[in-house]
Amino acid sequence: MWMRELLLLLALSCLAACHRGMEPVAFHDEGYPAKLSDWHVVEARDGVLQLNEGVVPYELNTPLFTDYAHKLRTIWMPKGVSAKYSPTDTFDFPVGTIISKTFFYPLPKDAARNATDVAGTYDTSLDFAAPGQGLNLANVHLVETRLLIRRRDGWVAIPYVWNADQTEAMLARTGDVQALTLVSDSGERENFNYVVPDQSQCVSCHAHDWNTRAIQPIGPKARHLNRDYRYADGDENQLAHLMRVGYLTGAPAPADAPRNANWMDPHASLDARARAYLDINCGHCHNPKGAANTTGLTLDIATPEDRHIGICKPPTAAGQGTGDHLFDIVPGYPDDSILPYRLSSTEPGTMMPEIGRSTMHREGVALIKAWIAAQSGDCVVLH
């Protein structure tokens, strides 16, 4: 028992150290502060990207792919308010909520790396982050931090780009482009342009209803958050943790809440993994109200596996986006299907998603191809 108490004391001491010297989180109900540190949500201090008091980190069961970048996600709310639980939609967050997402890359193990070299794999043995507490800046390269702010008139997205010294992120409403090089564990290199979207592009993914084009968060849904996280004081289910700290109301026990699969989980079914991957990467646009609602292709998790999800469905428009393929999904034949063709492309006008990546997600495409290859059925071509 004494050992458990000692570990808890050490964890709380670490937590207090991370907050030392940081001013309280500042919610700005208007305007666009010039520096990320003006918000005091996460700050680069003493070699660590630190989380302020009350800033709760979280992860998704299956995350959105962004050029192999890793992401530190956080939620903060003012005292005395909570988000309202929904089993299907984004939680109803109160005014004053700040959601942050910091995009970063592990640094290659090779000490002779170039200044633009970043690694795509995540080696936890390098201790990128203390449990639940930010990132060790000696082991990572920070690229950008995006904030979603719940103001009185709705959500607003504000992008910040980290400087070369990794000490501060500056407001970048017009976006940014950085030439980087991915370095694999085997030494394979891939040059690419990391694109930080400009503020106006955020609506492309974050508009839940394309008629109103009002933006809202994508990740904080029950099915994405229903998993354990290693917080500073131990492992806990994220839904249960948010309820316990007062950031969420109305949630059932985790066992009774929806849960998407982890796309890399070898114990999950191929179907569950592929559907989770399409849900987070494509479903925010390909749904009945989303930006791609005119395509007739719906890819969120609730879509039945029929023509609505693309099985034997012809495209609504011809052109380079089809690759001369006839159907979105041809059961058993991924190379004849439009869906993996567009996921594989990096050409503007062809690639999907349309923004948010400059590289092909090889492992993700392989998953979708395997899923289509395992399907049975025939597509009839009418002449």
Results as ranks from 00 to 15, higher is better:
Pro197Thr: 06
Arg152Lys: 14
Gln133His: 09
Ala129His: 09
Asp235Asn: 15
Ser204Gly: 14
Asp38Thr: 07
Gly175Gln: 02
Leu9Cys: 12
Met1Phe: 12
Asp235Glu: 15
Gly120Asn: 03
Tyr68Ala: 06
Asn287Arg: 12
Asp324Met: 04
His70Trp: 12
Tyr277Asp: 02
Glu53Cys: 06
Trp2Pro: 05
Cys285Lys: 02
Pro197Tyr: 06
Asp29His: 12
Val81His: 04
Asp265Gln: 03
Leu367Thr: 02
Leu8Gln: 13
Asp233Phe: 15
Tyr105Phe: 14
Asp89Met: 13
Asp256Leu: 11
Ser184Leu: 10
Val380Ala: 09
Trp155Ser: 05
Arg151Pro: 01
Gly96Met: 03
Met360Cys: 10
Glu23Ile: 01
His141Ser: 14
Asp271Arg: 10
Ala251Asn: 06
Cys205Glu: 05
Glu354Tyr: 10
Leu180Val: 08
Glu347Lys: 13
Gly319Val: 06
Pro334Phe: 04
Thr88Lys: 12
Ala292Thr: 00
Asp209Glu: 09
Leu12Ala: 14
Glu30Ser: 15
Pro57His: 09
Thr359Cys: 06
Asn293Thr: 13
Asp38Leu: 10
Ala302Glu: 15
Ser269Pro: 10
Leu10Ala: 13
Ala272Thr: 08
Ser358Gln: 09
Tyr341Ser: 00
Ser337Ile: 01
Leu339Pro: 00
Met352Arg: 02
Ala172Phe: 08
Pro220Gln: 02
Ile309Met: 15
Gln201Val: 11
Phe192Asp: 01
Asp38Phe: 10
Met22Thr: 03
Val177His: 11
Thr74Glu: 08
Pro266Ile: 05
Asn191Glu: 14
Asp198Glu: 12
Ala179Glu: 14
Val42Ala: 07
Ala69Pro: 01
Lys35Phe: 07
Gly132Asn: 02
Asp92His: 11
Tyr58Cys: 00
His284Arg: 14
Ala317Asn: 13
Val380Gln: 09
Ile218Ala: 08
Gly120Gln: 04
Val81Ser: 02
Phe128Ala: 05
Thr322His: 00
Asn226Gly: 07
Val380Cys: 05
Ile158Tyr: 05
Asp335Leu: 10
Gly319Phe: 08
Ser37Glu: 05
Glu188Ser: 14
Ala291Lys: 13
Ser345Ile: 00
Thr303Glu: 10
Ser269Ile: 12
Asp233Arg: 13
Phe103Ile: 01
Lys79Phe: 12
Gly134Asn: 14
Thr322Gln: 01
Tyr231Pro: 00
Lys84Arg: 14
Glu363Arg: 13
Trp210Asn: 04
Ile98Glu: 00
Arg213Tyr: 14
Pro131Trp: 08
Leu137Cys: 06
Val365Thr: 05
Val183Arg: 01
Tyr160Ala: 04
Val365Cys: 03
Asp209Met: 06
Ala222Phe: 07
Met352Asn: 03
Leu64Phe: 11
Tyr85Lys: 02
Trp371Ile: 01
Asp233Pro: 08
Ala274Phe: 07
Arg230Trp: 11
Ser376Ala: 12
Leu339Gln: 03
His325Leu: 09
Gly290Ala: 08
Pro220His: 03
Phe27Ser: 07
Gly283Ile: 00
Gly80Ile: 07
Asp110Ala: 13
Gly154Asn: 07
Tyr32Val: 04
Leu367Val: 07
Glu43Lys: 07
Ala317Arg: 14
Gly283Met: 00
Thr298Asp: 15
Cys205Asp: 06
Ala240Met: 08
Lys109His: 11
Thr102Ser: 06
Pro106Gly: 09
His325Trp: 01
Pro33Ile: 11
Leu343Gly: 04
Phe128Ser: 02
Val196Met: 12
Thr174Pro: 01
Phe27Asp: 07
Arg223Asn: 07
